[in-house]
């Protein structure tokens, strides 16, 4: 099974599961079209499209393999995936930290750490990372809080 076929199966499962969930949506008697109608139409459509995706992939499997050769991603360096993974990980951590540390502290840490991890591991670069982080956060803070009056999240720490 190709990637599309797997996606098709997953989406089919998702639409069936969500279709069952639509029974939970309340339906008041005074409206002619309840809030459950539209999701059901969409889920029906998605189920149909998933089956088509699955079918198309199974039918085309032979032809595609012959034509495609190596997928472009196969060539991508493993180090690249490490960077991608790291970025997601750090951003997730950053999002979790904002409500605790507040915007300023969390952002300085995030920018400094991520740029350090993505760049060359030299002292010069480390200093540069810290500098960029502080200057950037100071600029953003001045701009949004000081000037534009957009209050950025505070932490629970002082």
């Amino acid at each position: 099974m190709g990637r599309d076929a797997i996606t098709g199966c997953l989406l089919l499962g998702l639409s069936l599961w969500l279709y069952r969930q639509t029974a939970e949506i309340p339906r008041p008697h005074f409206v002619s079209v309840g809030p459950d109608v539209y999701p059901r139409i969409l889920l029906g459509l998605l189920a149909g499209l998933s089956v088509a995706l699955l079918g198309a992939d199974l039918l085309n499997r032979g032809g595609r393999r012959g034509r495609g050769g190596g997928r472009p991603e196969a060539r991508i360096h493993r180090a690249s995936y490490r960077d991608v993974f790291l970025t997601y990980l750090l951003f997730g951590g950053y999002t979790a930290l904002i409500p605790i540390l507040g915007f300023r502290a969390a952002t300085v840490s995030f920018v400094a750490v991520l740029s350090w991890c993505l760049g060359p591991k030299t002292v010069r670069h480390a200093v540069l990372c810290l500098l960029v982080a502080f200057v950037f956060v100071a600029a953003v803070h001045l701009m949004f809080e000081g000037y534009l009056r957009l209050l950025l999240p505070r932490g629970i720490l002082p």
């Binding site: 970025t87 951003f91 997730g92 950053y94 999002t95 904002i98 409500p99 952002t107 995030f110 920018v111 991520l114 740029s115 993505l118 760049g119 990372c129 960029v132 950037f136 953003v140 949004f144 957009l150 209050l151 950025l152 999240p153």
Partner: peptide, 29 residues
């Protein structure tokens, strides 16, 4: 290495400012 964190932070601010909820930053992520 600088562009990535800076753009992501700006994106997070933008997401937050839609209706001033941290939930939107999670949506963004």
């Amino acid at each position: 290495q600088f562009l990535v964190p800076v753009i992501l932070v700006l994106g997070a601010i933008g997401a937050y400012a839609i209706n001033n909820l941290m939930a939107n930053v999670w949506t963004f992520f």
